[in-house]
């Protein structure tokens, strides 16, 4: 394999990984605060490109405006899902909330089938995103570059919010002790809503970039990226935000390199990724950056 081919694959891996990183944040933040695996997160991701699609098609918004509107609407959907399906179960056993999350996931999938129809739609791509850049022998689609740049920007903003703002401080405090945080005057409900908004907005960015990269959208498109982003979050150490980013980039890279080096087995790429999950759970369940979890009592 030539150096160029390796570089080409690294570029592909980096950009796929940046998408996983964006999606996995939502899993890890919600888990960090509620100890809930939000199974509906993949569906949140799926809604964003649809919002964009209809924003452009029906409302004739310029694409950058529908980009913003789609992110906003997706964030609102995330907030509403928590209000309706998780908040009433805050004091319930964790398994009930988990089941509720599965319910939200199926609900959104089927709602999308009814409203948007199950037939895949081809996603409108502004011309810019069809451009292909040539660096010597390496050809890189502009969407790949955009994914890496856009996700890096959003991930930096996220790190800033979590570690440098008051709301971030509140998020980190309620992730270890909700009750004491309330004693400090933290509004827990508002902070949780904000967490869902951020996680969903990042998934929306990921979903739109995904649609630009694989320009076909359909109601079940969130399942596989959602699962893989969840695996990325576990690999990085669920509950740990830098871990989710790292896990996302690693997973994207590993997946692309697997296909590149073992093209004959490329049909097993998903199975390969899932076996990574199994191995991590067996040998390092706390993930790469995670600490050994202490059960909350």
């Amino acid at each position: 394999m030539s150096l160029n081919l390796i570089l080409q694959n690294l570029a592909n891996g980096l950009s796929l990984g940046s998408l996983y990183a964006l999606i996995s944040i939502g899993y890890t933040m919600v888990y960090g605060i509620l100890r809930l695996i939000n199974f509906a997160h993949g569906e949140i991701f799926m809604l964003a490109p649809y919002f964009l699609y209809y924003g452009v098609l029906i409302f004739h918004l310029p694409w950058w405006a529908s980009f913003l509107v789609a992110i906003l609407l997706t964030a609102v959907t995330g907030i509403v899902s928590e209000r309706v399906a998780y908040r009433p179960l805050r004091e319930a056993p964790r398994i009930s909330v988990l089941i509720s999350a599965i319910g939200v996931s199926y609900f959104l999938q089927n709602l999308a089938i009814v409203v948007f129809s199950g037939i895949p739609k081809s996603f409108h791509r502004p011309n810019f995103f069809k451009t292909i850049f040539q660096f010597g022998e390496i050809r890189i689609q502009s969407t790949l570059i955009a994914s890496v740049i856009v996700s890096t920007i959003f991930l930096i903003i996220l790190i800033y919010i979590i570690y440098k703002t008051k709301t971030g401080l509140a998020m980190r405090s309620i992730s270890v002790d909700i009750e004491t945080s309330r004693l400090m005057g933290v509004n827990v409900n508002r902070t949780i809503s904000f967490t869902f908004a951020i996680g969903s907005a990042l998934a929306a960015v990921g979903g739109i970039l995904w649609g630009l990269r694989f320009p076909q959208i359909y109601p079940l498109m969130g399942m596989m990226p959602g699962l893989k982003a969840f695996i990325a979050a576990v690999v990085g150490g669920i509950g740990n935000v830098p871990g989710a980013m790292l896990g996302g980039f690693l997973l994207g890279m590993v997946e692309i390199l697997y296909v590149a080096f073992l093209p004959a087995l490329s049909g097993y790429r998903d199975a390969f990724v899932f076996s990574i999950l199994i191995l991590i759970l067996l040998f390092r369940p706390e993930g790469i950056l995670g600490k050994k979890v202490q059960e909350k009592v």
């Binding site: 008051k166 401080l169 509140a170 405090s173 005057g185 933290v186």
Partner: peptide, 10 residues
């Protein structure tokens, strides 16, 4: 420092 800061959250 952050513990003190969250003490002053309000």
């Amino acid at each position: 420092r952050e513990n003190l800061e969250i003490g002053a959250f309000i």
